[in-house]
Amino acid sequence: MLVVLRHAPHGSSWLREGLDVALVGAAFGQAVTLLFLGDGVEALVRNQQAGALGQKGTHPTLDMLAMYDIEKLLVDSESLAERGLTLEDLQLPVAPIAAQALPALFAEHAAVFNF
């Protein structure tokens, strides 16, 4: 299954609820691919903190992905570049993917969950 994360952390619960679906999918034995797209790439920026709103933050969840065997992590190269980010700015090793490759990525997954 493919989980697409398109929202930045903190401003809404989209990212957290999307990550929850990925973790549960993995716990159910599914092979999970995560795609960070658009504002979703902000989730990966290193040195994040929980913030002032009493939220737990999503950065600790990212560190747990490997424990759940979620190892296929992809980031859209254009989304990164548009935000002035490079792979070195990110908390985790993720593989860049070009926009042209996205349709094939979506097509090869039986279930796509879009957050």
């Binding site: 929850d20 679906v21 279930a111 969950f113």
Partner: peptide
């Protein structure tokens, strides 16, 4: 639980968001 959503995505022909 969210497991039911994952299950729906896999067992149905289409999942529309």
């Amino acid at each position: 639980g969210v497991g039911q959503l994952v299950d729906a995505g896999i067992t149905h022909d289409r999942l529309i968001t």
